[in-house]
Design a protein around this nucleic acid. Structure first.
Length: 587
RNA sequence: CGGGGUGUAGCUUAGCCUGGUAGAGCGCCUGGUUUGGGACCAGGAGGUCGCAGGUUCGAAUCCUGUCGCCCCGACCA
């Protein structure tokens, strides 16, 4: 039991100017966090209690799934990252932890970095500690701080530079074991999110810089999310937009027949899809080829899409490059022979085809039978282009961004798109890290194999904010029982009245007896202030004790998520409070 | 990093366009009256107007630079 007057809950009447979204405003107004700088927050006493509750639930689910808790350093020797498989891609999100002023390293490379995640630490550890199949499988986890130099921190804890994450790493003898570990974790995640009161859905996801063979993200639908989730209510299909596909290209599509001889025509000043769509050219966007040039690991390549489609950059990850980016106009012209706006990939028109490492085409261009594309000559385009006849495609793939309303790849029904917050992610990593760090074991036939890994993250601090985002009203937070900083608030309206204070103490003891965490608002404040704070802070069950009620021999029970107030005779206090606490726990 | 915005008391902000003694509300302190949904009265403390240059007799206000913060995009739990 805690007394409000002796605890520390600095509530605010007004929202801080730098908070944009409800959950961020409420985090600050309810005294859960305070900002130090962009993406850097102090967890105030009340906020820390929520973090601890979420952490404990997470711990129980991880332990229940057979994972083993440990704690790893957060200052990492940079050499480990340099040896790892993603140094090039990951370095820019890492904070450096140089020796202050010793001058030995100079400005170029740090000696240490602050850990953004721990594959590079756990894998070498397991390499030296586990060498036999007898010790597999194993799954290690920690609940700890992560440091990421986010390009743009925002929305309070939603995307922070320093945040709390649960990260787990599984090591299996073979692929089948790794898939089992993955499924065990996925199931544990579902239980975790249910217990913290979050409606999270799992969706297929892109593996991103982590690498790996497949992954699922746990998403909380919310207007303020950073991600788009594509889903189908009929088939249950759901995927991150970066990964999502649609059935817009029929599986049995027959390539369209050539429509006529290739013909060049002048298009002075036309450098956009829209301009070519307009009169006098009048070429529909979906009959144009969009030719984009990218640079993958230093080498240029071409991506072709329908003019009406957008490139989903993350999908270029399937091409096997470590890093990729759009090419600049200066890089494009010497290779293709024209500036962006007049580019194409028709055989024979590319100025320096050997410089390209590939011409990759989205499947959807096969829907174009008689297309128009740039001539690789500024101010000219080509018409009557046929995919099979005129383009030298290295490889077809899925590169386009899915749009709402396109047919679901499974059911054919229209796909929907919603914003969501990513709160958890499970990856099947394969042997990417174990190969690199030599995490090898010997099987029962004396054969050596790389361990098959998986990794699993939950944003603990982000989960706290996602809960608020999903569970609040105009007056404040509405905590789910399991993660509430306190579950019962005894609101003592007349703290100077000794009899009332005594009753409050007894009711608080009864609630505590029933198994709830109890906070007693014993401040010398007016009732209005206490009620407003109670709603703002959002404790699920409120017990109100005031002189008015006591004269009639009653106190009040009120749920934060409901409007009505129950007047309870003092004589029934023990039973009613116990019942309410049991009800809260069950909700 | 690119684009947009913003910086005035602990918090929310007015003033800036059109240069001339820095104002309010909340919060805080003192006293009093109040006491079931953010009370009222009286008094009080609290500001290098983000920082550095410049223009000017004079700069919160105009100019330049710089830093912080917020929003949109790429990245992520």
């Amino acid at each position: 039991m805690k007394l409000w007057s002796q605890f520390f809950i600095p509530t605010l009447k007004e929202s801080p100017a730098d908070a944009e979204i409800a959950s961020h405003k409420l985090l600050v107004r309810a005294g859960l966090v305070r900002k130090l700088g962009g993406g850097l927050y102090t967890y105030m006493p009340l906020g820390l209690r929520v973090i601890q509750k979420i952490s404990q639930i997470c711990r129980e689910e991880m332990d229940g799934a057979g994972a083993i808790e440990l704690w790893m350093p957060h200052v990492h020797p940079v050499e480990l990252w340099q040896q790892g498989p993603r140094w090039a891609a990951a370095r820019e999100i890492m904070y450096r932890a140089d020796h202050a002023g010793d001058g030995k390293r100079g400005p170029r490379e740090p000696e240490f970095v602050l850990g953004p995640t721990h594959e590079e630490i756990i894998t070498p550890l397991v390499k030296t500690e586990i060498t036999s199949y007898r010790d597999l499988p194993k799954n290690f986890y920690q609940i700890a701080t992560k440091f990421r130099n986010e390009i743009r921190p925002r929305y309070g804890l939603m995307r922070a530079r320093e945040f709390i994450m649960k990260d787990a790493y599984s090591f299996d003898a073979d692929d089948a074991g790794a898939i089992k570990s993955y499924q065990t974790m996925k199931a544990a995640y579902e239980k975790f999110f249910a217990r913290v009161g979050l409606k999270a859905i799992s969706v297929e996801a892109d593996t991103g810089v982590m690498g790996g063979s497949f992954s699922h993200e746990f998403m909380v639908p919310a207007e303020v999310g950073d991600d788009d989730v594509v889903y189908c209510e009929t088939s249950g299909y759901s995927a991150n937009r970066e990964k999502a596909t649609s059935g817009i290209v029929p599986a049995d599509l027959a390539d369209a027949a050539p429509a006529g001889a290739v013909e060049e025509f002048a298009t002075p000043g036309v450098v956009t899809i829209a301009a070519l769509e307009a009169a006098p050219y009048s070429v529909p966007a979906d009959q144009q080829f969009k030719t984009l040039v990218y640079v993958g690991d230093g080498k240029p390549f071409v991506v072709i899409l329908r003019g009406s489609d957008e490139l989903e950059e993350a999908k270029l990850g399937s091409l096997g490059f470590t890093l990729w980016r759009a090419a600049t106009a200066e890089e494009i012209e010497p290779v293709l022979g024209a500036k962006p706006g007049s580019l194409g990939a028709v055989k024979g028109t590319i100025k320096n085809p050997t410089a390209l490492v590939g011409i990759f085409a989205d499947h959807a261009i096969r829907l174009i039978g008689n297309g128009t594309t740039g001539a690789n000559k500024d101010g000219f385009h080509l018409r009557h282009i046929n995919v099979a006849r005129d383009l030298a495609i290295t490889k077809f793939g899925d590169f386009r961004r899915v749009r709402a309303g396109e047919p679901c790849p499974r059911s054919g029904q229209p796909l929907k798109i919603a914003r969501a917050i990513e709160v958890g992610h499970v990856f099947k990593l394969g042997t990417k890290y174990s190969d690199k760090f030599g995490a090898i074991y010997t099987d029962d036939k004396k054969q050596s194999h790389p361990m098959v890994m998986g990794c699993y993250g939950i944003g603990i601090s982000r989960t706290m904010q996602a809960v608020i985002e999903q569970s609040h009203d105009a007056d404040g937070i509405v905590w789910p029982w399991n993660v509430a900083p306190f579950q019962v608030l005894v609101c003592l309206l007349d703290p100077q009245d000794a009899a009332a204070a005594e009753v409050a103490k007894n009711l608080a003891a009864a609630a505590e007896q029933a198994g709830a965490d109890v906070l007693v608002d014993d401040r010398a404040e007016r009732p209005g202030v206490k009620f407003k704070d109670a709603d703002l802070v959002g404790i699920p069950l409120r017990i109100t004790v005031g002189g008015k009620g006591l004269k009639e021999g009653i106190f009040e029970l009120k749920w934060r998520h409901q409007k009505d107030v129950a007047k309870v005779p003092l004589a029934e206090a023990g039973a009613r409070i116990a019942a309410a606490v049991a009800e809260g726990r069950a909700r």
